[in-house]
């Protein structure tokens, strides 16, 4: 909660993004500390997911999207022409709204990235599987079924395996795009507990529709509205004592 003492892992300035001719982000300045959870909240269409996906250049996959502004990640420029997006995404992992395990076994899912990096040593792979699944709090449920298909798991388990798959790559920053919105309340609860445990070791940015989720798990909260960043502060300040009228209206449920 004391982010003043911590280092900044990612600093963005004047982030603007266009879908074709339409400007969807109007100059966002946001910094993220190297530990803890920052929640991005705001109504649908406020630009929070668009902003999140700009951070690991997922918009590169789409046609007609233009991004400008400065993105300083651990001293490197994310959008520099020399940046290797493949390397970048190994450092900035992403978890999506829908659990998206590959149609392979749980084991193969978790070590997928390591295997492609050329890791062959079975001991290292085994260790990575156990560590990542434990970090994602799903080890106890799947440890006897590691070689069964990940598609046979429940949605919540699939989502935690997806998280483990990202953690196995040892990223510095974790982007979570509404990771619980497709899950039932109990699975959501499990994911939240997982994230709270990971908060000690990882920097995380989570987009969420649920204000109660933001208030439960995040250290800092940023409120987006119509492509603008309205306010960012420690979560309790945003919810108890916001500085801006729009924030006040949104967190008190008067719109959105």
């Amino acid at each position: 909660m004391t982010d003043k003492q911590e280092k900044t892992i990612l600093s963005t300035r004047d982030v603007r993004l266009w879908y074709g001719q339409k400007e969807a982000l109007h100059g966002i300045d946001l910094d993220f500390p190297n530990k803890g959870i920052t929640a991005l909240i705001g109504p649908s269409g406020s630009g929070k997911t668009t902003y999140l996906r700009a951070l690991n250049r997922m918009h590169d996959l789409e046609d007609g999207v233009t991004v400008t502004g400065s993105f300083n990640f651990n001293g490197t420029d994310i959008y520099a022409p020399t940046t290797d997006t493949v390397d970048l995404r190994k450092q900035i992992g992403m978890v999506f709204q829908q659990p998206n395990p590959f149609p392979f076994s749980i084991y193969e899912n978790v070590i997928f990235g390591l295997r492609l990096d050329g890791v062959k040593d079975k001991a290292i792979l085994d260790e990575a599987v156990e560590r990542s699944l434990k970090q994602a709090s799903v080890w106890d449920e799947v440890k006897d079924d590691l070689h069964k298909s990940a598609l046979g798991l429940s949605g919540g388990q699939q989502q935690r395996v997806s998280i483990a798959r990202v953690l196995a790559m040892s990223p510095d920053l974790l982007l979570l795009d509404e990771p619980t919105s497709a899950l039932d309340p109990i699975s959501s609860r499990n994911i939240e507990e997982t994230l709270l445990k990971l908060r000690e070791d990882y920097a995380m940015i989570i987009v969420t529709h649920s204000m109660s989720q933001a208030s439960r798990i995040s250290d800092r909260t940023a409120f987006f509205l119509s492509g603008d960043l309205i306010e960012v502060d420690q979560t309790k300040h945003i919810f108890l004592n916001p500085q801006k009228q729009e924030t006040q209206d949104y967190v008190s449920g008067r719109f959105g």
């Binding site: 997922m58 992403m94 998206n100 590959f102 997928f112 798959r165």
Partner: peptide, 20 residues
């Protein structure tokens, strides 16, 4: 979703095609 998962894991497009 599978293509996004691949590239978000740091796979190149060809690796995603080949391995996923």
């Amino acid at each position: 979703l599978q293509r996004e998962a691949g590239s978000a894991l740091g796979l190149s497009r060809w690796e995603t095609v080949l391995h996923v």
